[in-house]
Structures are given as structure tokens and as C-alpha cells.
Design a protein around this nucleic acid. Structure first.
Lengths: 247, 247
DNA sequence: GCAAAAGTGTTCTTTTTACACCCATGG
DNA sequence: CCATGGGTGTAAAAAGAACACTTTTGC
């Protein structure tokens, strides 16, 4: 991805100068998507750092915690209208031990006094979401950083305790897949039962029988059946489905 | 309960003077117990305030979040070795709108500058637990406050957003009753199946059939059967049970 | 012996899982 | 007409709910 270094530095400087954040608290978003049956998580990396991190940020003084999570995600990935769910708050003393911020700022030659709030202890609130992997193509190239998907069991070197956060976030998603699936733009508006099954199998890392899966899902009464979908292959065309408006 | 007013003021003054807390963050504990089939929650009240609040407090700079929750609970209720589970973090901007702290300090004639950290915005992390109601008798009379159990659907006037916190905490307990029951000292070491059934029925607000409940619980394979318990009544004596050590 | 409450056995129902069959589709 | 994959029917198995019967206890 394209990197504009001067803009990058300017943005960072602005962040550092801001006094409008609630100190000691941050949010981090674990965004899961899947690609060809492989579950992936969205990570960011500043150009000159060798560690990746979750899309995270701070809370404005006059902003609700949940709004901050949505804003932070948008600012860093341009994902909008993403349903985010809070899942856990991480508050170990030493969780930001490998101070990535410090290294980054040094690289950028940005002068920050050592008692600056950004170096203080942070407690972070984790939010998670499941989204359509295809939205990946729509991320605008962020000027600040590289944005990429990683398989959940082939993670790169991560900042702070972000590996742990991903682990806990993934557990949460697995336990709450039913609500997550409905609430999100994980699938295109219309999809086949097989598409949905692939999602379940990828997220839960389990296999289901085609026919029983169909019955189970239809019994939930959350789908409406639409027209058939002809993809040109030599077999019976599957129906398309859509999530019902309300319940 | 007995109140020592000068000690009370002294403690508060000390809290206010402390600079060792992580600003903007607090913990609140929702402790549930049950009494004669009624589910209750433990609340505290400073003597001269008319609002009740959850046992809560702040996090020391050199303390893990979860340790802070345990410490805070112990300091305010003298409950020790209580298994606490984090369930949600509350971060609405206006959640501490009805500033109970301010009123309390004014009552006590403690001078605090208006820009003191205690008046700043706070984001609070909720922890919950289910405990044996009989432990209530063992709370030492806290010098600072009154400590009492309230029925979960007959709550008094509460500080901040504590009513909401209780609601979310109770939901969490209900969803996780199986783990909570085992992890806690909710029941005495030895108990009858009926005792356990009463707990389930009280917490979940549902009725079960005696025989089916017994089968369901025994199938979990978490109990070991002990001797019979004779309470002098004219009927067959029930067995006592105990939670198995490991699994 | 009797009432009360506990333990256990049995049936009925519902849900879940497994297997089977038929149907539509493009080449 | 054939291979492929989708829809639906049905049987077997497991789990859950309801009912009945027997046992133990103190009076």
C-alpha cells in the first residue's frame, strides 16, 4: 500500500498534541472475516514498525465508549456502519510493556516528553465484529499504515497483548455466532445456504451435514427464501436467502 | 449498623489525597445472594447519603484490574476469596451525572478542588459473583458505611448508573449459572439436591421438577454423593452432596 | 400405619443426528 | 442421459418432560 510519510508524521503529531482524550483508556477492535474457508483477522502496521496491531485508539472526553470504538474503527480502516460488540476489558499492569508507541515516535523523530499521557498505563476495552471479507477490497489506502488480513492461527508479531485480545475476541465470536451473523454485513444481501454454512464452518471450525444444517437454520425463522441462483454449473440451482427484517 | 463518623471522614480524606490511582477508571462489583428463595444484591450506603451504590473503587497504578476488583470488594465488605467475573464495561459520558461523590464530600465538609480527579469522567468495569447469603452475617460492620441486601426487583435509589449495572450483571449470572455455581462458595460445602435446586430456581426465576432436576445435575458429573442428612422431619432423609475437586 | 418428601423406573414427546431418495441443471 | 449438487422425507438415536411407583422417616 501507498504510504505518504509527511502526512503520516503530521497526523501522529496531531494525536500527540491532543488533550481531549480520556487518559489511561483505549479501545481495540478485533475484526474477523473469512476468505476461502479460512478465518482471518484485520491488522494494521505503521510503515516503519515491525509489529502489527489491532485497529485501536482513544476515547474523546465527550464521547461514549461505544461510539469511540466505532469511530476508531472507521478512522483506521474506513469500515463504516459496522456492528461492534464489546467483549472484554484488559487491565494487566504490564500489558503495554513492549512500548510500541515509543518506538514508533522515535522512528518518526517526533519529540514527546517522557511523562506524556501516551506512555502511561492503558486499560483497553475490546470490541469485536465479523464482517464480509470482500469489504477488504473497499478499504481506502490509509495514509498512515498498512492494512492486512491474517489467518487467526498464523499471526505475525503483535504489539502489546494483542494476541491475547484476539484469542478472547475469537472465543466471543464463536459463542455468539448466531447474533453476530444476523447483525452484520458478513454476507452479501442475498446468499445461498451453502454460503452460510461455509461461514459457520469457518468460524466454528466444525463440519455440518448439508441437510441438517439447512433445517436447523430455517427453524430459526430468520431467513426468507428468494429466487434461485444459477451459476452455470451442471446441477440443481440453490435458492438465495436474505435475513428477515425484524423478528 | 454502627457508624464512627470521625474515622469515616478520615478514610475519605485519605482516599481523596491519594495520587496512586489510575484516573478515569473504576470497578464495581455486583454480588448476588439469595435468602429464602429471593435473589438479592449487596449494596452499600454512606451514612449521610440517601443513595445506595455497588461496592466499587479505584485501581492502583501498580495493580492488575482483576486484582483491584477483589481488593475493592474485600475493603468494602470484607468478603475474601470471592470468585469475581468481569462481565461488562460501562462508558457512557453521562453515567456519573448525579454526582454522588460531590454530595458526599460536601456533607462531610471535606474540601476538594473542583478539578480533582474524583470529579472527572469515570469508565467502570463491572464484576459479578454469586455468594452464599449466609456469609452476610459475617461482614464486619464497616466503619464507613451501611451494608445491606436488597431484592433485585425492589432496589432502592441508586447512585450513577448502578441500576443498569445490576441488570447487566444479573443477566450475566443467569447465562453462566453452571460455572458460577461451581466456582463459588454459594452453598455450604455439603448440601442437599433440594438446596441446589432452590438456588437454580431463585437465580433463573424458573421451576423445575424434582426428579428431572436431580437427573440433569447428576449427569453433569460434578457432584459426589455423601452421607444422608437427617433433619428430624418425618420423611426419607436426602443425601448430601459436594462438588468434586477437579473434573 | 400414615403423611411427607426423597429416590428411582418408565413412558411419552421433542429434538438431534444419520441415511436415503428424488430433483434440477449443463454438458 | 449422466454426473453433480440441492431439496426434502424418514428412520434411528438421544435428550427432555411428564407421570407413577417405591422407599424412608418420625410420629
Amino acid at each position: 500500500m501507498k504510504i505518504d510519510d509527511s502526512k503520516n508524521k503530521q497526523d501522529l503529531q496531531q494525536l500527540i498534541d491532543t488533550q481531549q482524550f480520556v487518559e489511561h483508556i483505549s479501545v481495540d477492535c478485533t475484526i474477523f472475516g473469512f476468505d476461502n474457508g479460512i478465518l482471518k483477522v484485520l491488522l494494521l502496521k505503521y510503515h516503519d514498525l515491525d509489529v502489527w496491531s489491532l485497529p485501536g485508539g482513544f476515547i474523546f472526553n465527550d464521547e461514549d465508549l461505544s461510539d469511540a470504538a466505532s469511530r476508531v474503527l472507521f478512522e483506521r480502516t474506513h469500515l463504516s456502519d459496522t456492528f461492534l460488540e464489546q467483549f472484554h476489558t484488559f487491565g494487566q499492569i504490564n500489558r503495554t510493556a513492549n512500548n510500541a508507541h515509543q518506538i514508533l515516535l522515535k522512528h518518526k523523530n517526533i519529540e514527546v516528553p517522557p511523562d506524556h499521557w501516551i506512555f502511561q498505563r492503558f486499560i483497553t476495552v475490546g470490541y469485536c465484529s465479523l464482517i464480509d471479507f470482500n469489504l477488504a477490497g473497499t478499504f481506502p489506502n490509509s495514509l498512515n499504515e498498512t492494512c492486512a488480513w491474517f489467518e487467526v492461527n498464523k499471526l505475525p508479531k503483535l504489539a502489546f497483548d494483542h494476541e491475547r485480545i484476539i484469542e478472547v475476541g475469537l472465543n466471543h465470536i464463536r459463542k455468539n455466532i448466531d447474533t453476530q451473523i444476523v447483525a452484520n454485513n458478513l454476507l452479501p444481501e442475498k446468499f445461498t445456504m451453502k454460503d452460510l454454512q461455509t461461514v459457520y464452518e469457518t468460524v466454528l471450525d466444525e463440519k455440518y451435514r448439508r441437510n441438517n444444517f439447512q433445517r436447523k437454520i430455517l427453524a430459526l425463522n430468520i431467513l426468507e427464501r428468494l429466487e434461485k441462483f444459477f451459476d452455470g454449473s451442471a446441477n440443481k440451482a440453490p435458492y438465495l436467502y436474505r435475513f428477515r427484517r425484524k423478528n
